[in-house]
Design a protein around this nucleic acid. Sequence first.
DNA 1: TGACAGGTACATG
DNA 2: CATGTACCTGTC
Length: 271
Amino acid sequence: MTKKEFTDFDICQIAQSGQCFRLRPVPEAENTYSLTAGEKYLEISQQGTEITFSCTEQEFESLWARYFDLETDYSKIKEAIDPEDIYLQEAARIGGGIRILRQELWETIVSFIISQQNNIPRIQKCVDALCREFGETAQDFRGDAYSLFPAPEALAGTTEEKLRELGLGYRAPYIVKTARMVCEGKVELESLPELGYEEAKEELLKLCGVGVKVADCICLFALHHIEAFPVDTHIKAMLKRYPKGFPFERYQGFAGVLQQYAFYYELHGQK
DNA sequence: TGACAGGTACATG
DNA sequence: CATGTACCTGTC
């Protein structure tokens, strides 16, 4: 157990921000969430600014501080928002506990291919099914079993039909083709983190089922290019509030954080 | 019943 | 390059 104090952090908001599909409330445990990331399993509980992580201090420092982007000062980002921009101010107030995570690349690629024309509960269901069917099994700190996200080889070895049975629908062939492309080295995942935003996006666009929006999500949520600004149906609606155009120049280099505030606000805020 | 959910591939002009 | 359409599946 490791206890920490953080501002601009709300695990519940992060879980509902739609950037991560394996961060869920623990049933019957108040303010507690479970997370599977990479090979690790973690539980997080929060009471106000006090956050408890179910890991050692050492693991927290070496892994999770970076994963949750805790070294970044998000208050500075909020201060950069135009004081006259009522919408963004309110969005940042409502969703201000969101952090841009540093998720595992392959899992993020597959998850966001699944995300197209899909809702969050069903995306979670699909991701769970992939983990259960194709992922390796590990044990958490209680000795309970959990499934890891399947490696590219595991998904390259299956068929479109099998994935359709799991409810992936028309995304099934995309996943199989993309997994095969990765295994064949058509796109080298290992070298992607070295690239800049534009170059990384260009590489990702080669993958089947990855278009501009999904590529931006991967850049933002896995490669931590926080300048990436995924535009989906909700964000399109939001952009209409800016008849003179959204002020991207003003927020150059970190517009993706504002995108997350706006996305969360469109989904859960304002009523 | 039909539209919609964090779009993309593929076919045209 | 810009536009149009089909596409799995669950939910309201």
